[in-house]
């Protein structure tokens, strides 16, 4: 999109957990400023792609480039500053005995950044005021926790955000707030998103393209318009869409 900078380039990625190949021969480009979804059912390998990009699944072959810089197999501090991840479960992803402030300043300390304003600025970006800065996760609601998790991902000013089912542990009313937040942040901060989800309507709200995964492979990459008109080329994508549509339409007959 736009300036045609490639934020993320994945070439022939294969990821294994021991003997099991979770991802096989995945290639995908995401342009800067774009929002792309990886969709599929459990076990399709969609989350594993994100884990390989962040270094949480080190047993991979192929190529991963982030803003033109190839990713190696070792932890990469510079990469962490450009690419961050938001996890599904805000209950599990925040340390229970650390305050919001401690969670946010840790990343700054690791990267040697001294910027006293950044914590409060980032909190206000995700819609939390100063009162929340010294609270513990158990003193926050699920939606507030996910806002903190997003703040934690944003504090290093990354350009690429990996979102792993960021709203599927939340109530629908809270989900709407977080989806609005993610949409606004992307526009305000010029972020690029790679979103993993099983929820196709969420893709329609937040993304421009989607890659459908099955059995560790991408079976089809389609524009989100396909969600509206059902114009998928692959039969599996069509069935996934049809099943989800059947579920979805009942709310609004």
């Amino acid at each position: 999109m736009g300036r045609d900078v490639t934020a993320l380039r994945i070439r022939d990625l294969t990821v294994s957990y021991g003997e099991t190949r979770a991802v096989e021969g995945v290639s995908l480009d995401v342009a800067e400023g774009e929002s792309v979804a990886l969709v599929g059912e459990s076990g399709s390998g969609k989350s594993t792609v994100l884990k390989a990009i962040t270094g949480l699944a080190p047993d991979w072959t192929g190529g991963i480039e982030i803003f033109g810089r190839p990713r190696g197999h070792r932890p990469d501090k510079a990469l962490a500053a450009t690419c961050q991840m938001v996890f599904q479960d805000p209950y599990g992803s925040l340390h229970p005995r650390r305050t919001v402030d401690a969670v946010l300043t840790e990343a700054l300390r690791i990267h040697g950044i001294r910027d006293d304003d950044r914590v409060s600025r980032t909190l206000s970006e995700v819609g939390l005021d100063a009162r929340f800065r010294f609270r513990y996760p158990h003193q926050l609601s699920g939606g507030q926790r996910q806002r903190v998790a997003i703040a934690r991902a944003l504090i290093l000013r990354p350009r690429l955000l990996l979102l792993d089912e960021p709203t599927s542990a939340l109530d629908v009313s809270v989900q709407a707030e977080i989806l609005n937040l993610l949409k606004r942040l992307r526009a305000e901060l010029g972020l690029t998103y790679l979103l993993v989800t099983h929820d196709l309507p969420v893709v329609g709200f937040l993304c421009e393209r989607l890659a459908v995964m099955r059995g560790g492979r991408i079976v089809e990459v389609a524009p989100v318009a396909a969600l509206r008109d059902g114009a998928f080329a692959d039969p599996y994508s069509r069935s996934l869409h049809a099943e989800s549509l059947r579920h979805d339409t009942e709310a609004d007959p």
């Binding site: 629908v172 989900q175 609005n180 929820d199 709200f205």
Partner: peptide
Amino acid sequence: RGLLAAVPRMDETRAELPVL
């Protein structure tokens, strides 16, 4: 009504989801 409106739809075109 708020709950029904807050759910994204397959043919989503709203720029923002209504919040309760």
